[in-house]
Design a binder for these strands. Structure first.
Length: 569
RNA sequence: ACGCCUAUAGCUCAAUUGGAUAGAGCAACGGACUUCUAAUCCGUAGGUUGCAGGUUCGAGUCCUGCUAGGCGUGCCA
């Protein structure tokens, strides 16, 4: 499709040039020619509103301009063009010959698992940092959404020629993990019978820390009580981080997300980078002392107030290691860095970008998207209050457990990933538990997977009757002449541009929608037209090629989403 | 108070980034299994795109002002 678009583009461009040369069109230069999507076959295969865009400059009615452009295209010289219509306000609708549809099938057959991919990214290196949950508790469902989105974006970017990696930033330093240590200390002593203790302000109340404290008591007994409190809290902090981190890793593994790099905040703090960037800031006079702390002139960058970078107690606030971390990312040679933040980090976006600017890094080098919150809802859209049901916040594991009870473990991850991916990142996501648990076609995941399974089933059935798909060169593709077959192929042809657009706009949700649409054409086709027909083998072989193509695209799409493509259901 | 995000069918969301008649899925109603898997299909119904202006050939999309909701504005991360 892309090469065909390029070809048509050139034809149109030449036609406009010719019209200008002939003095029929008074414009100074040929603008970029936009293509508008064709919503119905009546509008042809490729359409452009270019005549509308030129109307003002040329001081002519759009339809007249369109006529002039058409006049300068010689249909005989371009066999891929079947006919050109002018419609509506002056749209130029180009109908291609059926051969381009068959070319699409050739391309799919040739590329197989690579169909949909391209080299647009030219090997540019991209890092996506996501999840990066504090090691203070289990991953929640928003982290799950971020995991699904980040993982898929990396897949998409790699598919279109970037070299993208997944990275997790472990916040294993600072006040929050201190409070983790203190919280575990309280639970530990409570398990050993001490009374009147309370989880400190800002600490972690969750049941999971009591369970963890119990395992410490089981293995170490009360031996830690002999330590001074500071040392004991530090010990518990480190034990807690290691424990919770391993749980988070296990959850992610179950969710089929495999990070390439785990970076420790503590390691960044120890690397000397924070001191380096502070030196840079100091040299640029971005810092000043006040009220016993060191401040950064954030207001110079348009923020409404400055912020503290070194506290009264001499410690860095999280800004410093975070800025140092991004300096480190840049030093590692990434052309683009994408951070996916949780909904509670909105205030951090402009500041982090300002720090990056203060470090002298390019403006567009860092992209930050917010992955908005997730609500679990019932079929009527009423919010399910998980805290009442579980006595704690809803975790990713608990969600998958609940899904697995009904749809089975192997589909639970598929369903969760699909539901997390089906919405644009910056919108709140209502996770319809009832629909997710539906073991039927209403569930969009199964609808798509079932389409794939049906494709597989056709080949299995064919095999049993001695009908095996032939190589595409030996098949008469002209047999594919039903309107719905053409519609299917048109849809298949869209796939590469969907992948490219999703990758470049970082909007993964387009892929699930696309797959649902593709399945939505395949299922009716399956019902209306028999593929295997021993009375008409020529048609059967042609249709088998089409089914193979659908199967390939469904599988490629699902793979990008990290969702399985079952061969039977 | 300020900042960011959101507002589209009863519900949840799309709309190829300014293009043609705004599309899907749930939910509702009526039909189709001697058939390559009914986890499917066919049909019916559903809209002043929150409100008011503006920009232009053309606005769900861009600008301004309202209204409603979510989140964010700590020497927490």
């Amino acid at each position: 499709m892309n090469t065909i678009k390029t070809e048509v583009y050139t034809i149109l461009e030449d036609a406009i040039r010719a019209a200008v040369a002939a003095g029929e069109l008074a414009i100074s230069e040929v603008p970029t020619i936009p293509f508008s999507p064709t919503k119905t076959p009546e509008h042809g295969d490729i359409a452009t509103p270019i005549a509308l865009g030129l109307a003002k400059q040329a001081r002519m009615a759009p339809r007249n301009i369109a006529e002039i452009i058409r006049k300068h295209i010689d249909p005989a010289a371009h066999p891929i063009i079947r006919k050109i219509d002018i419609a509506g306000a002056g749209f130029i609708n180009i109908h291609l010959s059926d051969n381009w549809l068959y070319d699409t099938l050739q391309t799919i057959a040739a590329m197989q698992a690579a169909y949909g991919s391209s080299d647009k990214g030219a090997g540019k290196r991209v890092q996506i940092e996501f999840v990066s949950a504090n090691p203070t508790g289990p991953l929640n469902i928003v982290s799950g959404r971020a995991a699904a989105v980040g993982d898929t974006l990396v897949n998409l970017l790699n598919a279109v020629g970037y070299e993208a990696i997944r990275e997790f930033y472990v916040n294993d330093a600072g006040g929050q993990v201190e409070r983790l240590g203190e919280s575990i200390d309280v639970r530990y002593r409570q398990v050993l019978g001490e009374e009147g203790l309370e989880i400190p302000e800002g600490g972690y109340q969750g049941e999971y820390l009591t369970e963890f404290a119990q395992t410490i008591v089981e293995t170490d007994g009360d031996s830690h009580l002999q330590l001074e409190k500071d040392k004991r809290v530090a010990l518990f902090r480190d034990k807690g981080i290691a424990h919770i981190l391993s749980q988070q890793r296990a959850s992610l593994e179950r969710f089929k997300v495999d990070f390439d790099v785990w970076t420790s905040e503590q390691a960044i703090r120890n690397s000397g980078k924070p001191e380096e960037i502070m030196q840079t800031f100091r040299e640029k006079s971005y810092l000043y002392e006040a009220e016993g702390a060191t401040w950064f002139r954030m207001s110079d960058f348009g923020d409404d107030k400055d912020c503290v970078v070194i506290r009264q107690n001499g410690e860095y606030t999280y800004f410093v290691p975070d800025a140092a971390y991004h300096r480190d990312k840049f030093d590692r040679g990434f052309n683009t860095v994408i951070d996916l933040f949780g909904p509670d980090h909105q205030g951090h976006i402009s500041r982090l970008k300002n720090f990056v600017k203060a470090l002298g890094l390019p403006d567009d080098w860092l992209e930050i998207s917010i992955i908005q919150q997730v609500n679990l809802v019932d079929a009527e859209g009423n919010r399910l209050d998980m805290s009442k049901r579980r006595g704690q916040f809803f975790t990713l594991d608990a969600l998958i457990d609940e899904l697995a009870e009904t749809v089975g473990e192997e589909f639970a991850v598929d369903v969760a990933r699909y539901f997390f991916l089906m919405r644009a990142n910056n919108t709140h996501l209502d996770f319809n538990m009832e629909l997710a648990l539906t073991h039927a076609s209403e569930n969009p995941v199964f609808y798509i997977q079932y389409a794939h399974a049906r494709c597989c089933s056709i080949f299995e059935q064919g095999g049993e009757h001695g009908i095996v798909a032939k190589p595409i060169e030996e098949v008469s593709l002209q047999q594919l002449n039903e309107p719905i077959e053409h519609e299917l192929i048109r849809k298949l042809a869209e796939f590469p541009s969907i992948v490219l657009l999703s990758a470049e706009t970082r909007e993964a949700h387009r892929v699930p929608h696309y797959l649902h649409e593709l399945a939505g054409i395949f299922h009716p086709y399956y019902n209306q037209h028999r593929v295997l027909d021993s009375e008409d083998l020529e048609k059967t072989y042609a249709r088998l090629i089409l089914v193979q193509s659908v199967q390939t695209v469904l599988k490629n799409g699902l793979t990008l989403l990290g969702i399985s493509a079952p061969e039977s259901m």
